[in-house]
C-alpha cells in the first residue's frame, strides 16, 4: 500500500518542475534572437516574476492567517510568560524571568492538573478507541439500514459540547440524578459524582467517550472498507474464524489508522477543556473543590481569565505546548517502531 502511494507521489515533483522550466526556455528564445525591444522584455520580466511569485501569493493566505492568529500569539504568549502581567494592567509588565515557570513547578495545583489531564485522558481515550473499533467492526457487516446506523453513530459528535454536558450534569446529579437512581437498584449508595475524585473523572470521561466514539468508529469503518476482501477470503480458506480474521487481518491493516486516531485523541485529551468546565457549573474553572477534575486547560483559564494572572497563564500555555511536543515525539518513536516491525 505504501509503495503504491510513493509511486503516485513521484510524478508530482517532476510535473511541478515542468512549468518552472518554461521561463528559462522563454529566456533562451529571447537571447537567441535580436536584442529584445523595451516593452516585450518588460513583459517577459513581469511574466517571469509572475511565475515565481504567484505560487507564494496563492499559498500566502494560510501563512498570513496562521501568522496573525497562530504564530504571533504563540510568540507573544512566550514573551508574556516571562513577565508578571495582570489582566487589569496589561501595559505594566514587569520582567519575571523564569519565575512563572518556577512557580508552576513548585505548585501543587499545576502537578495536580497535569495528573488529572493524564488520567482523564487515559480513561477517556482507551475505552473510546476500543469501543470504536468494535462498533466499526459490527457496522462493517452487511446490515439492514446501514446508513441509518452510521448516521446515528455520528450524532453525538454533531451535538454541542454545552448541550451534551448539561444533560450529563443532570444525569450525574447527586440526588435525583438518573445514574444514581439506576445504581440504587443494584444496592449502590448515592455517589457524589461531582465532588468525588474518581467519580468526577469518570463522569467527565464518559462525556468525552460519548461524543467521540462515533467519530472514531466512522474513521475505522472507512479504513476497514478499504481492506481488500480477498484477504478475508484467503484467511477463511485457511480456516480462520471471525475473531481470528479480526485479529490477524483487520487489526494489522488498520494500524496506520489506529495510529492516526491515537495521535488525534491524545492531542484532544491534552487540551480537554469544555467538558470539565461546563460539568463544574458555576466556577467550573476550579474543577471541583479539590481540583479533582481540573485539567491543564482549565487551570490556564482559571489563572488567566478568572484570576487575571496572565503571566502565569501564559507559562501554563507554554508548558502545555512543550508537553504536546513530548507526546508527539513519543508517538513518532512508536510509529517508527511499528513501521520497523511491519
Amino acid at each position: 500500500m505504501s509503495s503504491s502511494k510513493q509511486a503516485l507521489a513521484h510524478p508530482a515533483p517532476g510535473s511541478g518542475a515542468a512549468p518552472g522550466n518554461q521561463p528559462g526556455a522563454a529566456r533562451g528564445a529571447g537571447g537567441r534572437g535580436t536584442p529584445a525591444p523595451g516593452p516585450s522584455s518588460w513583459r517577459s520580466r513581469l511574466y517571469r516574476w509572475d511565475m515565481k511569485a504567484s505560487p507564494y501569493a496563492f499559498i500566502s493566505p494560510f501563512f498570513i492567517i496562521f501568522g496573525a492568529f497562530g504564530l504571533i500569539p504563540l510568540l507573544y504568549t512566550a514573551w508574556y510568560s516571562l513577565h508578571n502581567v495582570q489582566l487589569s494592567s496589561l501595559d505594566h509588565k514587569t520582567w519575571a524571568g523564569l519565575d512563572n515557570y518556577r512557580n508552576l513547578l513548585s505548585s501543587d495545583f499545576f502537578w495536580n492538573a497535569l495528573k488529572n489531564t493524564f488520567t482523564i485522558g487515559l480513561i477517556s481515550t482507551v475505552p473510546q478507541l476500543l469501543m470504536a473499533i468494535g462498533i466499526a467492526h459490527l457496522l462493517n457487516y452487511r446490515l439492514r439500514g446501514s446508513t441509518v446506523w452510521r448516521v446515528v453513530m455520528l450524532t453525538p459528535y454533531a451535538t454541542s459540547v454545552a448541550a451534551a454536558t448539561l444533560v450529563f450534569t443532570l444525569l450525574y446529579s447527586w440526588d435525583g440524578g438518573m445514574v444514581n437512581w439506576l445504581l440504587h437498584f443494584v444496592g449502590v449508595n448515592a455517589i457524589n459524582w461531582r465532588e468525588s475524585t474518581w467519580g468526577s473523572q469518570f463522569a467527565v470521561s464518559s462525556i468525552v467517550i460519548w461524543r467521540w466514539t462515533g467519530y472514531n468508529a466512522l474513521i475505522y469503518l472507512a479504513a476497514m472498507q478499504a481492506i481488500p476482501a480477498d484477504l478475508y477470503e484467503s484467511a477463511a480458506i485457511d480456516g480462520a474464524n471471525r475473531w481470528q480474521q479480526f485479529r490477524h487481518v483487520t487489526i494489522p491493516q488498520l494500524r496506520p489508522t489506529i495510529l492516526f486516531t491515537v495521535v488525534v485523541s491524545t492531542i484532544g485529551a491534552t487540551q480537554l477543556f469544555g467538558e470539565p468546565l461546563l460539568f463544574g457549573g458555576v466556577s467550573g474553572s476550579k474543577g471541583g473543590s479539590e481540583h479533582q477534575y481540573q485539567t491543564l486547560g482549565l487551570y490556564m483559564y482559571d489563572q488567566g481569565w478568572i484570576i487575571g494572572n496572565l503571566g502565569k497563564a501564559s507559562a501554563i500555555a507554554w508548558s502545555m505546548f512543550l508537553i504536546l511536543l513530548i507526546v508527539a515525539a513519543i508517538n513518532l518513536l512508536f510509529t517508527r517502531r511499528l513501521r520497523k516491525s511491519q
Partner: peptide, 16 residues
Amino acid sequence: RLMALAAVAALTTGVL
C-alpha cells in the same frame, strides 16, 4: 525564496 516569502508576508501583514 524564503526571503521572498518573508517579504511577501511582511508586506501583506503591513497591508492587513
